[in-house]
Amino acid sequence: MRAYALRRVILAAPTLLGVTIILFALVRMLPGDAVQQILGEYPGYASDEDALRKELGLDKPIPQQYLSWVGHVVRLDLGESLQTKRPIVDELRMRAPVTFELGILAIFLGLCISIPIGVLSALKQDSLADYAARTLSVGMLAIPGFWLATLVITLPSIWWQWTPSPTYTRFTEDPVANLGHMFLPALILATALSGTLMRVTRTEMINVMRQDYIRTARAKGLSNYVVLIRHSLRNAFIPVITVIGLQVPVIIGGSVILENIFTIPGTGRYLLEAISKRDYPVIQGINLLLALVVIFTNIAVDLSYSIIDPRIRYSR
């Protein structure tokens, strides 16, 4: 197990390398490169395209650009934003915790909502409660997050002339105000997530409970509760964990929209702006950071399989 974990972490290195190469290539494949973009929008930024290219270090051969970028990255230097000229690392140091907080809150809320309902739904399969829960879960999946968010902000402003505070407060300054600000967007992120989780929980619970070993466990006279927790839920949890792992990038993606609507200074807004302005170093920097997060989440998910279900072994 420990050997596997170690191997898994070591294997993350080539993944990261792959990520950097793809990122670097993809960003440079975007039509309308930064130079044309900047000169198009802000003519006079430099005397001509070549001068600007030189100023931005884009005149060198692409492999050289890549190597110099990686070289800096290793030293934790992601460069400066083309637009704002601020160091990207500083910016991420401020923004990343915000997005992570939003994501973790969303996952937490998502689990709180989905597991009980999913289990209940499975236990009472095809009952009215099951139908209601399934309808609810699908309803949660079926509403686009941006729409829910707009409703949550707009309708109270019309009905009661009230809106949630638009001012973001740092967690370190005022945790209560911060959580208050984050709660609604996290809940909206959690809605879609819990829709998915609820369905997976239900499906897997039913699946597992029909397994003969559960029948055997029941036949052995184990109480329903013990069967539920020790056997069913435990086995059903593997796909749930997988789905959470898979949802991490989705949550980060969803936070792009919600950060915009709820005025949260996270990485999502930074990234969106950077893409629309072709701010290469920023796009690369954020993606790299998020990729790191996702890679380590994946490792954690893989490892959790064998912890939860001993039948899955990785040593060969």
Partner: peptide, 25 residues
């Protein structure tokens, strides 16, 4: 291992962001 590494690489990008990037390309 190989397939999973490729999947890892691809999965490492936040979905909406990679979509926007693909659309832009």
């Amino acid at each position: 291992t190989l397939i999973q590494r490729l999947v890892d690489i691809w999965l490492s990008f936040p979905s909406l962001v990679i979509l926007i990037s693909i659309m832009a390309v």
